[in-house]
Structure formats: C-alpha cells, structure tokens
Design a protein around this nucleic acid. Sequence first.
DNA 1: GGGCCAGGTTAGTGGTCGTTCACCTGAGTG
DNA 2: CACTCAGGTGAACGACCACTAACCTGGCCC
Lengths: 188, 188
Amino acid sequence: MTEPSRREQILATAAELFARRGFHGVSVSDLGSACGISGPALYKHFPSKDAVLAAMLVSISEELLAVGTARSAGAATPTEALAALVDWHVGFAVEHRALIVVQDRDWSSLPDEARERVRSLQRAYVDVWVTRLRETDPGRTLDAARAAAHATFGLLNSTPHSGLLDDAAMRDLLSTMALRALGVAGAG
Amino acid sequence: MTEPSRREQILATAAELFARRGFHGVSVSDLGSACGISGPALYKHFPSKDAVLAAMLVSISEELLAVGTARSAGAATPTEALAALVDWHVGFAVEHRALIVVQDRDWSSLPDEARERVRSLQRAYVDVWVTRLRETDPGRTLDAARAAAHATFGLLNSTPHSGLLDDAAMRDLLSTMALRALGVAGAG
DNA sequence: GGGCCAGGTTAGTGGTCGTTCACCTGAGTG
DNA sequence: CACTCAGGTGAACGACCACTAACCTGGCCC
C-alpha cells in the first residue's frame, strides 16, 4: 500500500508555501520546483491548483471532526470532554501550524463544492464543542456557545503567530488559557 | 478641511473587499468599480495597489498602539490596565471586523518598508500588554507573556468568524473570556 | 475668458499565471 | 523483445493583472 509519496509531498510542501505566502501568492511553478519537479508535472497528481488546496483542507477538516467526536464521546463528563477537546485541538494546532494558517486564510479560495464541504465539516466540529459547552452551562444560548467555541479556536489557533515557546510549553499555556476562558473549573 | 472623501472611501471599500476575497483576490478594477470610479482612477489617489494596503494597515496599527498606550497609562493598577486594554481591543475588533481580517491575512503582502513599520508597531503594542501582564504576575516569562498576549488577540480577533451575536453581546462575551484566559480576577 | 489642474476616461503594454499539448523516458509485463 | 504507461519535460496559449499613456472635462482664479 503505502500510497504515492509524491502526492503527499506536494500536499505537505503546499501547506508550508500557502501558509507563508498565501494561496494566490504561490504559483504552480513555485510549488512544483519546491517539490523537485517543475511546473506542469503537478497535473499528473492533481487536476488543478484549486484541487491541491481542496484536498488539504477537506482532509484536515475531516480529521478534526472525526477525532474530536471520538475524544468527546470517550469522556466520562462534559467537563472532561471539554478538556479532551482542548487537548486534541491544541495538539493538532501546534503540530500542524501551517495547516491552521491556510485553513482560515485561504478557505475562501476553495472551489464551491469543496468550500461547502469544509464549511459543513467545520460546523459539525463546532457543534461537538457547543453540545459539551451547553451541558456544563445550560444557561448558555446556542449562539453564545457557538461564539465561545469560535473564540476558543481563535485562541488555540494563535500558535503560528508566536513561535516563542517550545511545543510543550505552548501546549500548556494555550490549554490553560482556553479552559479558563471557557470557565471550566480546575484549570490551574 | 474635511479631507478628501474619495481617498477614505477607497480605503473603506478596500478593507471590505480585501477581507472578503483577500488582497490578491481583488483587482484594481474591482476596487475601482466598487467605488463608482473605474480601474486606473485609483492611481490619482494612491501610487500603487500595495500603497492602499499599506496605508490601511499602518494607520490601524498606529491607532491600536496609540490608544492602547493611553488606556494602559490611564489605569490605576495593572489589573485595571489589562481590563482597559481588553475593553479597547474588543471594541476596536467588533467595530472594524474587516480591518482585523485583513491585518492578519494580508500582512505578508505589504511592501518591505511598510511591513517593517507595521511589525514594529505591533511589537510595541504587544509590549504594552506584556508589561501589564508581568506586573500582575511576575512569575511570567517574557516569552510566555508575549505568547499569552498573542493568544488573547487570537481570541478577541475571532469576532469576524462568527456574526451570531449582536455587537454588545459579542463584546461582553469576548471581554469575559479574555480576562478569564489571562487570569485576571473579577471576571464574571 | 483663458489657463490650470484635480480627477476622471479608454486603450494599450509587459509580465505572470493556470493550464494544455506534444513529446520523452525507463521500469514492469506477456 | 515489443508494449504500456506512470510520471516527467519544455513550449505555447489565453486570460488577467498592475500599471502607464494620452486624452478629456469642469470648476476656480486672475
């Protein structure tokens, strides 16, 4: 099995370049030569430049939702579920800084179909958080819970903006801040 | 006096368009016709497309720093200073959602000189926060305080991602979450 | 009323981009 | 050994973009 390494090399390289210069700031030729091949060879692996972005963003949205759902379901209490969600999300963000940047910067450059796909996956992911948030605090409005989830993502996704701390320290800091922001007890 | 309305119309329109489609996703002709003029007429007001972006981002960076500094200086205690900073920042973010989006998405498209200018203004603004943060909690490392400030900006700047709440409710929610995240006592 | 000029216009230019085309190659297969 | 075909190449194409050039116009000033 061990699927084609070229395709994945392209996706990984594209993530770094798109994160640094933006989707429109990276040409097909740039991307190709960063992979050791050049220009139009990309079209042997993807039908278009858009498709590279789409594959990238759809797959991370799917992973966030799938693992997030599992972590939440595996927790004994709503509070523990939120802690697990924060832990998962911050780990993902620290480990895939480039993808985080691309996801919320170049999301709007997606072709229509992929954009809708990503949006619906993201909505579902937000809902996992929202459900747990409203279990811990039933006074929260649906919209308020959604806004709180978005705000927490903003906090956790700030990782790429400050490469000051090492990964472990960054994870600790962000987890603590996120749990406090959400009003989850026991955040040191 | 009442300076040229065209120039400011262009800046305001550009902020909206850049926020929606990205700097590279908006052509000079798009921007012109959104202002009721067309295409190259922009060059009567700005020397280049880059200059529009630069004027926009430099001016908001200056305002954030200037008012932030004043608010911090006007506070009696470090804790009150942080509350004032949060209040100012969240108010700005809610009121200028488009600018917030452009600032951290298209920052890298700035011409070199303006980019350095904006970066140094932003560093200075972060330092206002960092100083107050370390006064309230001297145990914080310089880098940890910077990362905490960036994380708080990420939280506060999440406004544009969820237009669910009205402005007042959004300000309340974000202020509360930010102050809790920062560990400032007396937040709801 | 003639001259100036801020602020428009349209047409054009050079460059870049995404994409396609025709072609090449070398490893695997019957 | 002939055939195939995945994966590469460079050249070319059409679209679009930022920007320039040449020109027009209407208010203002002496």
